[in-house]
Design a binder for these strands. Structure first.
Lengths: 199, 199
DNA sequence: CGGACGTTATCACAGCTGTGATAAACAGGT
DNA sequence: ACCTGTTTATCACAGCTGTGATAACGTCCG
């Protein structure tokens, strides 16, 4: 099998998981062919035979983690209709944004890896299609959530929420300057949602 | 001269400028000793003699661009007392935040380089002190500006503004998913400031 | 059986990296 | 004039990188 992007394959899965672990730990630069081979336990020859080139391997891993995030985002909006009172609309918004800022360790790790790929897109053109798609997905999701929650000024409010979530994500991936007394991300989020949907 | 961190030195300045150009273009990985030597026109032997090691060279460049940003932030708060009516307080906030999101090309380039160093701190411990300091500086500045503008809920509003500015910065450094019709960063900013200081 | 194909296992190659080392040219100050 | 420190100019070394190439082994399917 020469990798058509399919999902039901043990070896492919092991290799991509290894790439994601390495990227989460040390950025895209850490995911060299030899390291991926060692980390996954798959022979370097197999890795190359499957994915063709180093760049193809990394973009496959990036597409994989991007697709997982998209699945999670879709589920977040399909899941909860909810009541349309103030509390229900606030809960809807918080629920959707929570999908973008997961707390579970494995999802958190995937978020870090995805963030690393998106950041690397500035330098490596191979990641740009994915980065652009993820940005559009995020905007579309938040816009629809704001719309469902009955928020006005959709254009600018979408952009504000995108920036807020991006900033929280960045600080989550690159912790710097936040003390023990600074409010947690979800607190900031609740505050923003409450300001958007006044009681 | 073996580099004590002083400023009045032509060779040192040329080398550090070369590092910043390379980092802005291609991330910290692009700023190898040989490339810096070629880009600056200074012999690689001199570069090594001055800075001792590759890591020391990069941290010196990071400290340099960090210090420049800090100078700009200090100036932003010393500069304008301004009237204390609604328009004046909004103008103050926008003025301060504008220092964090410069539009001039050279300052923009420095912002990209600084962002790259802060992001690299996740992986390279040498940049962590700088990253932490920049994060604290940003928080302190925005907190003082919000305080001067008479905004309540200082703790959470500071964190919200920090996240907003971080997100706008990230999207500025790593453009992804923003269409031609999406509101510009300064528009989002004005909207947020107007929401913080109701008329 | 036999061919196709994925997998493991190597070797070699050119290219880049930071670093150690050395030598000569040049500068400025005592 | 002499010494000290900076600059330029090289060479070598080990280590990593992606890639090309080859060969043997295994498995599965026709």
């Amino acid at each position: 099998m020469i990798d058509g992007g399919g999902g039901g394959d043990a070896v492919r899965h092991r290799v991509l998981e290894a790439v994601l672990r390495l990227v989460e730990r040390g950025g895209v630069a850490e995911a060299s062919l030899r390291r991926v081979a060692e980390e996954s336990g798959v022979n370097i020859g197999s890795v190359r035979h499957r994915f063709g080139s180093h760049e193809a391997l990394l973009t496959a891993a990036a597409e994989e983690v991007g697709a997982r995030m998209e699945r999670r985002l879709d589920a977040a909006l399909l899941d909860p209709p909810g009541p349309s009172d103030v509390a229900g609309r606030r809960a809807l918004l918080e629920h959707v944004v929570a999908a973008l800022l997961p707390e579970a360790p494995e999802e958190r790790a995937e978020l870090v890896a995805l963030h690393e790929f998106v950041a690397a897109a500035r330098i490596h053109p191979a990641f740009r299609p994915l980065a652009a798609r993820m940005g559009r997905d995020m905007r579309a999701l938040l816009r629809r959530a704001l719309d469902l929650a009955g928020v006005a000024d959709l254009d600018v409010e979408t952009e504000r929420l995108v920036a807020l979530v991006s900033g929280l994500t960045f600080d989550l991936v690159h912790p710097h300057g936040a003390g023990a007394d600074t409010p947690a991300p979800h607190e900031v989020l609740r505050h923003h949602v409450a300001a958007l949907i006044p009681g």
